[in-house]
């Protein structure tokens, strides 16, 4: 309809009965012969009602609309429809703004404490989720690392390239008062892939063993079950393969349990402290 833009003022004047007879005839003939032009005139007419409803017409134009344009029920009907649509849209926009204002005031005003609490809860929930995901993924990785072997067995043929750490001192459950001075210190060199924890002093009286590695005694990292001791030159050992990146400096515990006839027995805790290279 762009092509009719130059006629906009003429059409507006025609609709307000403000044109000479020949201009009137010119507009009307075009309306009858050009459907697109007729549609454009309808659009200008609707916009005139709109301008009337929104009260943006100059005084003289407004008077002409009132006196010349709104004399038939059909046209008044159009104006009512436009008024109703305007009221509906303005009210809806006001409601939306009011909701937005409330949200802003909730965040900025009296509800600051509640907002901070909500944010804290969200942060804690996020961290908990992240920890669960990380733990599950480490559990799977460690299970895979310890399940390889030509006979499908467990803990049979650890890779020779693993960095081996012998953890010999088994602290019995009753021995909780062992001083930190006696605690084994373990240095894990950088750029390692796998650390092999070799647990000594294992009795051969259980069907299989289960170990749980914890950090700082209360953060459980993973649990491995169905482990069997391996006979080495140093005697019977339980060997656990762990990704080296797990060992950040800190205090670690490997809890050992023996299973026989479906009964669990807590055998004790291997404790060690991972220290930095320097």
């Amino acid at each position: 309809m762009k092509q009719f833009e130059s006629d906009q003022e003429l059409i507006r004047s025609y609709l307000l009965s403000d044109v000479e007879d020949d201009q009137r005839r010119q507009v009307e003939e075009r309306i009858f012969t050009d459907p697109e032009y007729a549609d454009y005139v309808l659009m200008i007419e609707a916009e005139l009602y709109e301008d009337f409803v929104f009260d943006v017409l100059a005084g003289d134009e407004r008077r002409k609309v009132s006196q010349r344009l709104l004399l038939t029920p059909d046209r008044r009907e159009r104006v009512r429809g436009t008024e109703m649509l305007r009221d509906y849209a303005v009210q809806r926009a006001a409601r939306t703004r009011s909701v937005m204002d409330r949200i802003v005031s909730f965040l900025q005003g009296n509800y600051l404490v509640a907002g901070v609490s909500l944010a804290t809860i969200a942060l804690v929930a996020g961290l908990a989720g992240w920890w669960v995901l990380t733990r599950n993924s480490l559990q799977q990785e460690v299970s895979l690392l310890n399940s390889s072997g030509p006979d499908g067995g467990v803990n049979q043929f650890p890779d020779a390239s693993d960095y081996a750490v012998d953890i010999a001192s088994l602290r019995m459950r009753s021995d909780s008062e062992v001083s930190l001075a006696k605690e084994q210190r373990v240095l894990i060199p950088r750029d390692l892939r796998i650390v092999q924890l070799r647990l000594g002093a294992v009795a051969d009286e259980y069907s299989y063993y289960e170990v749980t590695l914890s950090r700082e005694s209360d953060v459980s990292l993973f649990t491995l079950d169905h482990l069997k001791p391996r006979t080495t030159a140093d005697g019977k050992l339980i060997i656990v393969r762990v990704p080296a990146r797990v060992f950040i400096p800190g205090y670690y515990q490997l809890t050992l349990r023996g299973i026989k006839d479906d009964r669990f027995e807590n055998l004790g805790v291997y404790a060690f402290r991972v220290v930095n290279e320097n």
């Binding site: 943006v56 649509l85 305007r86 509906y88 849209a89 303005v90 809806r92």
Partner: peptide, 8 residues
């Protein structure tokens, strides 16, 4: 509704 939402 957006089109009709601003007054005057």
């Amino acid at each position: 509704l957006q089109y009709y939402s601003e007054e005057k």
